[in-house]
Simulated assay, not measured.
Amino acid sequence: MRPSSDLADLDATSGDETVFGPELGEFPNADERRAQSTGEGEMKTGTTTVGLRTNDGVVLATDMRASLGRMVSSKDVQKVEQIHPTGALTIAGSVSAAQNLIQTLKAESNLYEARRGKDMSMQALSTLTGNLLRSGAFFIVQPILGGVDDEGAHIYSIDAAGGMTEEEYTVTGSGSQFALGVLEQEYDDDLSIDEAKRVAARSIKSAVERDTASGNGINMCVVTDEGVEVTKHKDIDELTA
């Protein structure tokens, strides 16, 4: 018999048995309960997202699939959103947290412009994004921030804890390793916007071929000093030719 002093150490979701089981400390569906307690039952984007910097702007691309555990919960998710007149954010991770982060960044960007009479710089926007993620209120999201300001085009890789680096190209999500291999081979400093779109599409396609959490089309976002354009394409091949 287990001493009574050990009962306090039992995890009700772990399936630990006691002399009092199954009424105390033992559940036949412990795996399902554990998944719920750790957030494994929430809707996640799974995801492959990429960002590339060019001389004329930035290109951001994502797949369009959302997953709920092992199930595809949506085939038409827009994983890149405009958050600034010349800035956009991709999302990978928890859908609810990502949606809240995007709404917060849009509001803060609008407030900045209203108070100061000018748009927030990409450096300031990336710092704000990192600070919000460090607060722990948006667990767990791993975005890519891309935008254009007076200093040119910028791509920022921001991890789920708020760490930030500026890159020429970057990837996030479960299909990252497949997409990154394409970017390593095909990225060049002198890419035009159209060439960058093709490279981004090919990297997403590579991930879709091997990553089960990515698929169902592509969101393509182009950011220049004139604004943000987001388009959806169910047929990735039309962008890779």
Rank of each mutant, 00 (worst) to 15 (best):
A179H: 01
E40Y: 05
K205H: 15
E168H: 13
S67A: 12
I155S: 06
S96T: 14
R70W: 05
T38Q: 13
T45F: 08
I204D: 04
I204H: 02
K44R: 15
N55K: 14
S176I: 04
I140M: 09
G215P: 09
R2Y: 06
S67H: 04
D6F: 07
T86M: 11
G25S: 08
A30T: 09
A179N: 01
L191R: 01
D63I: 06
D31Y: 14
A160L: 14
E81Y: 13
H154I: 04
A160N: 12
S4P: 05
A196S: 01
Q36G: 07
A179G: 07
G57F: 04
I236W: 00
T62W: 03
L60P: 08
G41Y: 05
S176R: 09
K205A: 15
A200Y: 00
N216D: 15
N131K: 12
L125T: 00
K234P: 03
R210S: 05
Q103Y: 06
E32Y: 14
K234W: 06
T48Q: 10
K44D: 05
E81L: 12
V58H: 02
T231Q: 15
D237M: 12
E238F: 03
H233V: 07
T62Q: 04
T240D: 06
V80K: 02
D211R: 06
D194N: 09
R65L: 10
I102W: 00
L7D: 05
E166N: 08
Q82W: 01
D189F: 12
A153T: 09
T13D: 11
H233L: 04
Q36A: 14
A88K: 02
A137R: 15
G51R: 01
P3T: 07
G117S: 04
S214V: 10
N29A: 14
D16L: 11
H233Y: 15
Q99E: 10
S74I: 04
A201P: 11
I155A: 05
Q36L: 12
A179I: 06
T49Q: 07
P85Q: 10
G25W: 06
D188A: 15
A201W: 07
L183H: 03
S37I: 11
A114P: 00
L125C: 03
A61Q: 02
D63P: 07
